[in-house]
Design a protein around this nucleic acid. Structure first.
Lengths: 250, 250
DNA sequence: CGGGTGTTTGATGTACTTCAATATCGGTGG
DNA sequence: CCACCGATATTGAAGTACATCAAACACCCG
């Protein structure tokens, strides 16, 4: 597109994107990157609360987040919402829709969010001739799978305090990998949403946060979080602290 | 291999396998099936308790179960075991190892079990030229991902009774799809293992089973299960019963 | 027929939920 | 800029589902 690029849309191709190391396979050659770039759409940013796709909606594309944050959730017939994930820049959503050809979850922007839209049929065709790309797709999905399994076990076998420690550490790592501070960050989601994700009541969230503060592990100011003692927080998250596990015996 | 096949090893290729509809993509032509068949190894059956692979072990292959049952679990440094999944004939394990190139879980046979071993590097090469196969791999992983997410929400947001209902229904469906009775089946795992998987103490498992029996939903005799009222059990499992959810409010 | 494992049952404890009320934040308009 | 409002967060008191402890019981394979 040899035309004037609006100021807002700098960095609209993969080769310039500073998230490329997270998004793209390492050993993808320039030609392949260009091909990939060719199929990617970059829709205008979503406002806070705007849906990226709806539960039950047709599956057409997967999405890589460029800026902002997204939550995915399932809506039950009775109106209950179950939050299933939070996604940050460089992360990919929609992979769980490939099999049934429609999205099991609804994805909503938690703040102003811009994404790369990758039409899946194009991606499939492209990856047929690109070993690196095919492998990358499998790796992303495999990683997601392993993460989800780990999460499962955390949620099932660990106390509220440990669950919260786990997400805080996870967010810290993810912010860190994106060049932001792993010590101080702002939660993109409400306590309510975070609690829902962890299977905890908002009141419990509040109490647990206060408990972590009393232990001088974290310091909170609304959604702003400061990790005061990462080492100890990680021990807590990994269940290697003195605190016993829930249902920990064998 | 034009040589005499031992009696035990009947049905040693994909085209004859009655699980092919579960295992293989629908629109894979005969040539492709033969190629696939060429890379698959069929090791001798595993005895009850024998490991298929170990946590931390090198990732070389994924495995499709032919007969028997397998459980996967993570072992914590302190000796605790977290059961992460149960797998039946036609199901594939090891996909979570692709990304980090080693297995996050240990897989153990719950009864005498035979598997198809699919070396992953061969599979990758093969699927480069086979759109149907590449798509199939993605679909399997996508399905696994969606399943895992659903499970997450079940475990986090639902009561012990509903969790048990969910696995029973799941097992019923899976046995049904494999040509076995969806009403009567034998659990391949102990109550302890099932409880661990669901995040429940064995004592709780026992009590919940008795509760389901009192409600005339199921009938148990050790590991033998009979589903007496599938409709109601499914309602319970899907949270549409009168029984309230745990932490159900939005 | 024993002993180890897996299951059941009861009594007690507790982590988390739920309910209810108050406090704080973030935005909007006077 | 402050007043106001709804949404979000906090705090306390009471209830409950499940874990834990302890002991009896069934089962299976030697």
């Amino acid at each position: 597109m040899p035309q004037v690029t609006p100021l807002r849309q700098q960095r609209t191709n993969c080769s310039d994107c500073r998230l490329a190391t997270l998004c793209l396979p390492e050993n993808l050659d320039d030609v392949a990157v260009n091909d990939l770039d060719g199929i990617i759409k970059r829709p205008r940013p979503l406002d806070r609360g705007a849906p990226l796709f709806h539960s039950g909606g047709d599956f057409r594309a997967i999405y890589a987040i460029r800026t902002g944050a997204v939550k995915t959730s399932r809506l039950l017939p009775n109106g209950d919402e179950f939050v299933s994930g939070f996604y940050l820049p460089g992360e990919v959503i929609g992979l769980d829709a490939i099999n049934y050809n429609n999205h099991p979850t609804t994805a909503v922007a938690l703040e102003t969010t811009s994404v790369c839209e990758v039409p899946f049929s194009d991606l499939e065709k492209l990856s047929l001739n690109r070993p690196a790309l095919q492998r990358h797709m499998m790796r992303i999905m495999s990683r997601e799978l392993a993460t989800e399994q780990t999460l499962n076990q955390v949620l099932v076998h660990r106390s509220a305090e440990q669950r919260l420690a786990v997400v805080l550490v996870s967010l810290s790592d993810r912010f860190g990998n994106r060049g932001l501070s792993p010590k101080r960050f702002r939660l993109p989601m409400s306590r309510h949403e975070l609690g829902n994700y962890l299977g905890l009541a908002p009141e419990t969230m509040s109490r647990i946060f206060r408990r972590l503060e009393k232990q001088e592990l974290v310091c909170t100011d609304g959604r702003d979080i400061t990790l005061l003692n990462q080492t100890e927080l990680r021990l807590l998250a990994h269940g290697e602290s003195e605190v016993p596990l829930r249902s920990g015996r064998a």
